[in-house]
Amino acid sequence: MNEKPPTLTARRKAATQLELARAAARLFTERGPEATTAEEIAAAGGVALRTFYRYFRTKEDAVAPLLTVGAEHWRALLAASDRSVDPLLAIEHAIATALSPSDGEDPGGPDGVHWMRGLLRAGVDDPALMNVWYRVNRESENQLRGVILELAGSSGDDLTARLVAAAATDSIRIAFEAWAETDDPDKGPGSPVERAVHNFRRFSAGLGNG
């Protein structure tokens, strides 16, 4: 069953939320969450404070759309995988593709991975911000389970799908968290993509024997 495309209103709302998320990530990185107000995020995103609170409960919640976009992108890549490929290999490929900048892409652009380091560093002293990070990861893991079950077809089972979804999600989460603690580059050795693929290979070595 094909889903209906989002309405123009829904697309505009999503675009506004993403712009606010980018503004929040930038301000949190530059000043820290404690020194940043919801009013400043709203102003940077070009909306009134009342509009901001229609979309988000707290200032920390504002970064969620930016995190969610990345998670949705890599799940979409996985869902489009060749069904003849082993699901574990398909997941590894989707992680590598999603976290690797495209040719000509500016890693310092609005959706590059550069902002993740500052955001995670800011979250060290802000439990509310880290709660948003963990919540988005948990939501992504739950949605990923369905994609994995579809890829596995008749040979799939829910428990294995849960384990694989957890392994894939945590591979990426831990990669970003470990990378944020360093000054390693966005690309190449020590980058998030290298770390995430390495993590998943370690996890999947055990999962493949299940």
Results as ranks from 00 to 15, higher is better:
residue 129 L to A: 06
residue 41 I to G: 10
residue 148 I to Y: 15
residue 66 L to K: 13
residue 186 D to C: 15
residue 151 L to K: 07
residue 50 R to P: 00
residue 116 M to A: 12
residue 63 V to D: 08
residue 110 P to V: 03
residue 32 G to V: 03
residue 36 T to R: 11
residue 190 G to R: 10
residue 162 R to S: 11
residue 78 L to M: 11
residue 185 P to R: 02
residue 56 F to H: 12
residue 159 L to T: 09
residue 208 G to R: 15
residue 168 A to T: 05
residue 140 S to E: 15
residue 16 T to A: 09
residue 105 E to N: 02
residue 194 E to W: 06
residue 113 V to E: 13
residue 69 V to N: 05
residue 127 P to K: 13
residue 32 G to K: 02
residue 101 P to C: 07
residue 151 L to T: 02
residue 15 A to L: 09
residue 66 L to F: 03
residue 36 T to G: 11
residue 139 E to A: 12
residue 76 A to P: 01
residue 148 I to E: 12
residue 189 P to I: 01
residue 109 G to A: 07
residue 210 G to P: 00
residue 124 V to Q: 13
residue 149 L to S: 09
residue 126 D to Q: 05
residue 169 T to D: 13
residue 99 L to M: 14
residue 177 E to G: 03
residue 18 L to A: 11
residue 176 F to Y: 13
residue 18 L to Y: 04
residue 76 A to E: 14
residue 55 Y to A: 05
residue 94 A to S: 15
residue 24 A to P: 02
residue 146 G to E: 12
residue 56 F to M: 12
residue 202 R to E: 06
residue 87 P to S: 12
residue 1 M to F: 08
residue 123 G to T: 02
residue 130 M to E: 10
residue 67 L to G: 04
residue 118 G to E: 07
residue 156 G to S: 10
residue 103 D to G: 01
residue 149 L to G: 12
residue 57 R to L: 03
residue 206 G to Y: 09
residue 44 A to Y: 03
residue 82 D to W: 08
residue 163 L to D: 04
residue 106 D to S: 06
residue 69 V to S: 09
